[in-house]
Design a protein around this nucleic acid. Structure first.
Lengths: 237, 237
DNA sequence: CTTTTTTTATGATTTTAATCATGTTTCTGC
DNA sequence: GCAGAAACATGATTAAAATCATAAAAAAAG
């Protein structure tokens, strides 16, 4: 009898709304929002939308983790973005009135709201504040993408692998033990983010494990030596 | 006695305005815009803005070509975007209220307007249409960046090189002869876009030249066999 | 609880592209 | 026009990472 909180109580009491782009809405606007959304539960591994599909709304993640991937025509996947609760999803194609250029697949069971397209556009036009929030989100994603381009161009696989682990930490954080990455990805999925072969990914993770930078336990990865990992990633900050 | 058209006649008669995000403004709004911009001429190789600088306005390219680059901390440059007349420049940092994360450098003499920051934000809030235009631009840049990520992850240098030439064609088009790319980049700059070494870039261009895919004449590159180049780039469309 | 499939692991080999080295051509400033 | 610098070119060598191959471990299916 598990229930999705946001279905029961509505957006006004949705705890992730406050950390989403919709935090700028007032009470009345929030109720409007609530009237134009519907929620759904997705099982792990389900598609939320697929490449080339037409958007008919904005997705907002209530809970769960999602990967955005494209398929190179040789079949190899590329993970472009990782999405977490409070994030909006599928906004790019929606806003530019295009088909999705990537697919969204849940990495675990998820609860996701879909906000009506027409309502969302009206809300954006009516609320510059909301629009700026969305713009900030897109701006952030663009910056991340361009940072990724620089890494792919200039760093070797080892550096990118370390960077990817730091990225996972930054995105999903740690579990209660304060060192285990709060997300489970297969080696292949990590490789699809890093832009390397599955074998190289496995090899490097093994190596990091041997060197006590990380601890591998099945799909669970713990970061044992953050400082060393940052060094390995070759990050300037 | 060459004069910058937009200084003399104002935005209302600016011929690139119509192909810019500002094409959605009406006559009155355009005059407003005109009152809040200033124009400047840049010599080839000049910085329009630099990494870590604070934006205080939106740049709009009247004429000229510009590269957006970041410097990896080992000193290697990465060309992230190429900008042409009618394009806006420096919008990402401005909109997200951040420092520039890349530098803008002119590839040839250029004439560039700078639109006052405060005015621009007000105009955006007042005109959802304008905002949507800017959003579409950013959305396009994000898509391009993500396509670039997939290429860097999954394609080899030869494929990426062919792709880069097609990208230059798509961005700047041909000269009057209908086959010579209307932009002059050094081999190093091309390498900085493709994500390879200068030597590899030179080698591959030579090879394409030998194979009659392209014709090299100094910095000028002509595309002789577009079909074959598309095949070499391994593009699905 | 087995069987089958998928994922992880690791070694050997090959391919790709970077790096190093050197020479030539082209551009730039005087 | 000439000197020096920068850009272009090409060969040789090395390094990095993909691919191929095989096997163990883990997960899923029956």
């Amino acid at each position: 009898m598990k229930n999705n909180g946001s279905i029961e109580t509505g957006c006004l009491h949705c705890n992730v709304r406050l950390s989403s782009v919709f935090n700028v809405l007032d009470q009345e606007q929030t109720q409007e929002l609530c009237a134009h959304k519907s929620c759904a539960v997705y099982k792990k591994g389900q598609y939320v939308f697929t490449e080339n599909g037409l958007p008919n709304g904005l997705f907002c993640i209530n809970s769960g983790k999602i990967k955005l991937t494209t398929t190179g025509y040789d079949g190899k996947e590329q993970i472009l973005r990782l999405v977490k609760s409070g994030d909006i999803l599928g906004y790019r194609a929606l806003l530019s009135n295009e088909r999705y250029h990537c697919s969204a697949i849940t990495l675990e069971d998820a609860s996701i709201c879909i906000i009506d397209k027409k309502y969302f556009f009206d809300a954006l036009a009516a609320s510059p504040k909301l629009m700026f929030e969305v713009v900030k989100k897109m701006s952030h994603d663009l910056k991340m993408a361009e940072d990724h381009i620089v890494s792919l161009s200039q760093k070797n696989v080892r550096e990118r692998m370390a960077e990817a682990l730091l990225f996972l930490k930054a995105t999903y954080g740690f579990e209660e033990d304060n060192q285990t990455l709060n997300v489970s990805l297969s080696r292949e999925e990590i490789a699809d983010y890093v832009g390397t072969s599955t074998e190289s990914c496995i090899r490097l993770l093994s190596e990091f494990n041997t060197d006590k930078l990380i601890l591998l336990k099945g799909k669970k990865i713990s970061i044992l030596n953050l400082q060393k990992l940052i060094q390995t990633a070759n990050i300037e900050d």
